[in-house]
């Protein structure tokens, strides 16, 4: 635990200066999408409104956890910085977890702000916003795990950056457009992407009556994906270190 906290504190500290402007950009991007689509989405289309607000909120997480983290691990690997951790008595999983946790922490203010602004803009109830407490860490963990994998497996740092950005675009596209409007093939892709379940869980929280069963099911998928993604990231770390 001492090692985890040390890594986490170190990551938060190094990120403070650089990440705040980036987080501002991430939030602005999502709020911009909310404003843009406000003119397009019909007043009465409640499901679409829920989807747009939830998708924009998860996009903040994707920007930081998927895009920035894949860049970070790509750079760590490319610069030989992984040797530093490999010669310290800490496991790769711990480095991945602590880094992912610190990045996920930075998504909280932006995601909360985006969902509140979205709810107000689209006239959605804020009463079940507590669902964010479950959605943010799980979406953060699963997307951060995937971001770390991309960064650690990419042969070059630039490829890690491109992969992270493509991943984020995927989250944006699949998260914001309501499922029923997507072609069937894309619906299959949507079902395979972990952010979908975080988006759906959050979207359901914007209804007046929360379907607890569905919420638990969505969050359960997020949890499983988080465990798998972080395990994969740990394995990728070990592979990158001993290459």
């Amino acid at each position: 635990m001492n090692a985890f906290l040390a890594l986490y504190a170190g990551q938060v500290s190094r990120a403070r200066a650089a990440r705040v402007p980036l987080l501002f950009v991430a939030t602005l991007q999502s709020v911009g999408i909310l404003l843009l689509l406000r003119g397009v989405v019909d007043e009465g289309s409640r499901t679409t409104s829920q989807q747009v607000v939830a998708g924009s909120t998860v996009l903040v997480v994707a920007f930081v956890a998927l895009n920035l983290l894949s860049q970070r691990f790509g750079l760590l690997r490319g610069s030989g910085a992984l040797d530093h951790y490999a010669t310290l008595p800490v496991s790769g999983s711990l480095v991945v977890l602590a880094t992912a946790a610190s990045y996920a922490t930075f998504t909280i203010p932006g995601a909360v702000l985006t969902s509140i602004i979205g709810s107000l803009l689209y006239g959605l109830p804020l009463s079940h916003l507590w669902v964010l407490i479950g959605v943010l860490p799980l979406a953060g963990a699963s997307l951060a795990g995937l971001g770390a994998c991309l960064g650690l497996l990419a042969p070059r740092p630039e490829l890690a950056t491109v992969a992270g950005q493509l991943g984020m675009s995927g989250v944006l596209f699949l998260g914001i457009i309501p499922e029923k409007r997507l072609p069937e093939v894309v619906q299959w892709v949507r079902a395979a992407v972990p952010s979908t379940y975080a988006t759906d869980a959050l979207a359901s929280s914007f209804s007046r009556h929360l379907d607890a069963g569905l919420l638990v099911q969505d969050l359960g998928v997020c949890l499983v994906v988080s465990v798998v993604a972080l395990s994969l990231a740990s394995a990728s770390f070990r592979r990158a270190v001993r290459a």
Partner: peptide, 18 residues
């Protein structure tokens, strides 16, 4: 490079804790 973004004292302290 893993230490380069950290302040000096935190870089040393973090490594010690690890």
């Amino acid at each position: 490079p893993a230490l380069n973004d950290l302040p000096v004292s935190l870089a040393i302290e973090t490594t010690g804790r690890l």
